[in-house]
Design a binder for these strands. Structure first.
Lengths: 163, 163
DNA sequence: CCACTTTTGCCCAATATTCCCCACTTTTTT
DNA sequence: AAAAAAGTGGGGAATATTGGGCAAAAGTGG
């Protein structure tokens, strides 16, 4: 029964945008609405790694991460591109744990990578969250908003997407 | 029962990035979160060797190394490339042991190979760790981050990798 | 084979980091 | 407007990391 609840929890997605303060000690307080989910699904065990395309961090529940990790590990290790992905993703994947106040401590090297100081944006992205420096986020978002959509480059999957 | 636990331990992967100081004597302190695993799986017996592609070192638990070693030995010894790999990997493989404080002593020749002085980056990479000079790592990582992914060279396995 | 130097491993002390707890501020709800 | 809940910040205890002293062990040259 517990298992079923846990599976159902896993199917739910994380949504929403939140602005959070990171304190001097590098702690980030997870918004309460996500806490119970993260406790149910992963007993508060989370994985923080880098996004290789953007200077932001990705936050996964441990079980969600393990699925991805298995795929990453299975990639051929003699291929240059996949080797690079393994190094960057697995190499930066750091286990963090929610403390009793529902906060996580950002490891210095990762914190530095994404310049997580002062105000941080936490974006729900389905199975994961993204953590952005607020300014970087604003800039990037405005950039995306300004981009023209050109029909030629749209993947076919988009045809069936009615908003 | 102990065997089973030990096998389960072996299935778990090493992840994450750590910055560690190597002291004057060439000692490197293994982060505590990995220590118990390494003791359980290998009683602290580790193998250190060189990465033939990069100026970094590879750190294996002894059992994990033995698997690799067997494969390397099985390679055809008349082939030039495999002969080279045998020489480099097997030749540099050195057994090191965690001391009671959880540190390992880096053999001078290996230490020199990867310029492991002052701050060192220890990257979890599944069955093994990589040890990098911090500066070398930063440079190499930034290079990898800057590389464009070009779709042509991507193996099919990547298609199923949704982060 | 013995004295001497160097290396290695253990121990302890100093420093730095991490975590828990509590208090204060801000936001939301009733 | 008061009460409740969530977010924020900092003191202090516990833990981890780091560096150096010292003794045992190993290597070196006579």
């Amino acid at each position: 029964m517990l298992k079923i609840i846990s599976l159902m929890e896993e199917l739910k997605v994380f949504r929403g945008i939140n602005a959070i303060n990171v304190d001097e000690k590098g702690r980030l307080s997870i918004p309460t609405r996500y806490r119970q989910r993260l406790l149910d699904v992963a007993q508060g065990h989370l994985i923080l790694t880098i996004d290789t395309e953007q200077r932001c961090l990705l936050l996964y529940s441990l079980p969600a991460w393990e699925v991805i990790e298995a795929k990453i590990e299975a990639l051929p290790s003699f291929n240059k591109t996949t080797r690079r992905i393994q190094r960057l993703l697995l190499g930066h994947a750091t286990e963090v744990e929610m403390d009793k106040q529902g906060r996580i401590l950002l490891p210095p090297l990762l914190r530095e990578y994404a310049s997580l100081d002062g105000r941080v944006i936490m974006l729900g992205q389905g199975k994961k969250f993204e953590l952005w420096n607020e300014e970087t986020w604003q800039t990037q978002r405005d950039h995306w908003l300004g981009e023209e959509l050109n029909d030629d480059s749209l993947p076919d999957e988009l045809d069936s997407l009615a908003l």
